[in-house]
Simulated assay, not measured.
Amino acid sequence: MPAWFEVLIIVVFAIGAVFFFAKYRETVAVLHESERMKTRLSNDLGRYRDVPRLRALREAVLGSKPLPTDDDGNEHLLLRDGDLQLHHLILRRESAPVGDDDNITYTKNGEQVKLEELE
């Protein structure tokens, strides 16, 4: 076999190897990006999974239909969380006029916290 033919075969295989590894790297990059996007979209879906429940809570609290009320005036609402466990919420609605000089507080973790929305 002539020497030029051996060199030609080696050059063709070298060029083929370069194209093969370039295509391989491109495929790996696309698969990596696909996995990254799948993870990101999965996290987004997990984050927005509770939106229908939050809408149901908003409609129950702010809606025109009254919630079931007991003898003490407490309203009762049943909601499911992300793990589909049922939670019983007891709501008490109170309203009072607020003056400009009044300090309005609410209870959070057993402590009185000043309401900042009025400032």
Rank of each mutant, 00 (worst) to 15 (best):
L41F: 05
L67P: 05
A14N: 06
G99A: 11
R25W: 03
L89W: 13
I90Q: 02
A22V: 15
P66C: 02
V98G: 02
D100K: 08
E117K: 09
Q85A: 05
L79Q: 05
F13N: 05
W4E: 12
I9D: 09
L91F: 01
A17Y: 11
G46V: 00
R47M: 06
I9Q: 13
D83G: 12
V61R: 02
A14G: 14
N43L: 12
R55Y: 01
L91K: 04
A60I: 01
V30S: 13
D71H: 07
D50W: 06
S95F: 06
L8S: 15
A96Q: 14
D72R: 15
E59K: 13
R47S: 02
R47L: 09
H76A: 04
V113R: 11
E116V: 10
D83A: 15
P2S: 09
K108T: 01
P52F: 04
E111G: 00
A17T: 15
R92F: 04
K114Y: 05
L79W: 00
A17M: 12
W4G: 02
L45Q: 13
D71A: 15
A96K: 13
P52Y: 05
D100C: 00
T39L: 14
V51M: 07
S95R: 12
F19S: 11
F20Y: 14
R53T: 11
Y48L: 13
D50E: 08
T27F: 10
Q85S: 08
Y48G: 14
L67T: 03
L118H: 00
Q112L: 14
E117I: 09
G99F: 03
I104R: 09
A22W: 14
L62C: 10
P66F: 01
H88T: 12
P66D: 11
T105Q: 14
L41Y: 06
H87F: 05
V18K: 09
H88N: 14
D44K: 10
D71E: 15
L78F: 07
L67C: 00
R40A: 12
E6S: 12
F13H: 03
H76I: 05
T27N: 14
P2H: 03
R49G: 08
E116P: 13
E59S: 15
G63A: 06
P97N: 02
F13V: 07
T105D: 08
D100E: 08
Y24P: 01
L89D: 05
E35W: 01
P2Y: 00
L86D: 07
L77Y: 01
I9H: 08
E35F: 06
R25V: 02
D71V: 07
D44F: 09
E116N: 11
L31A: 10
G16V: 08
D70G: 10
T107Q: 13
E6Q: 15
D101I: 02
N74C: 07
G16H: 09
G63F: 03
L78W: 10
E59Y: 07
R47F: 04
S95P: 01
D100Q: 07
A96N: 12
